[in-house]
Design a protein around this nucleic acid. Sequence first.
DNA 1: CAGACGGAGGACAGATCAAC
DNA 2: GTTGATCTGTCCTCCGTCTG
Length: 329
Amino acid sequence: MPSQYVAALVPQINGILRSSDLSTISAKGVRKQLIASGHEESVIKENRTAIDEKIAEIYEKLIANHEPGSPDGPSASGSRPDPSASAGPPSSFPEPLRKAPKVKREVEHEVKEETYAPVRRLEETDEQMAARLQAQFDAEGSSSRASRSAGALRKKSRKVVKRKKGTGDGDSDDAKPKKKRAGGGGGAFNKELVLSDALADFTGEARLSRPQVVKRIWEYVKLHDLQDPADKRFIICDDALKTVFNTDKVHMFTMNKILADHVRDPAEVAFKDEPGQNGPRQEHEPPVLVTSSQTAPVKAEPAAPAQYNSADMSTDSEPELESEDDEDY
DNA sequence: CAGACGGAGGACAGATCAAC
DNA sequence: GTTGATCTGTCCTCCGTCTG
């Protein structure tokens, strides 16, 4: 009896798979769509194993029928109707087909799927459906893309990028080997920045890249067990950290924001660092080792932490940060 | 059902590339 | 030529999904 039930599901599974992105669809996702289309959840669960096998079977057929070199297969629609299916194909599934190498194209497909949930029409072939969706997209796609907010698009595309990172295994590199970025190993990102006095005292370095600063801080936090036990995303500031963050407690995300006020481009600092002024920490000053010490390495400074003398270093934003940190999270 | 795993979330800025 | 999107590293927690 279960086999008959599963057999009856074949056309529907077939349709779901054909209208889905085979690189991301999962058996669970297909089952969910079956339930969404009116099938009893309990029945689906009862026959889960058999259904999964059938899904895998159909999936493999679709993959086999797909020509390796063709630009788009069943995923041409770029559809992934069930977001929950994004965790990846079932383990028994073969390596999913790869999409076009250009990330930007993928982003557009991602955007498209929000508007056009592709539903296979009865008796429609792959080609027909692909053509229909393409025409639909071409007709309205450009304007809707243009009007979409940059922020939303950026968020969306970030998701794509991250997903590719997780599942791609360098596949995108196969299609289009990435050029090494200038500067080597991170480029501007790993550029050394001049730290504020407070941060320089804290880290023991006058110059560090931003990621390095974050790393040092986390080393210190872990070493001194300064994470809020209730929510480890919060860092409880001891005296040393207070000189940098000027608050009792800081969220890890806020930390990054505050750090922005503590780093400056060397060129900018050199320009403003006139002799006789309180410029940034001199590089020849002996650094104070922080992370390996159990005692707070900070100078006992009664006032607010020393910062750049630059006029654009906003000091009035600090009280604001305090209130934000404590209440926003 | 518990554990493992992966993605999302925030901030930062400059180089690079694609599209127009 | 201009504009806009992407990529790069770092941190940890939460949450959804999958596997055994």
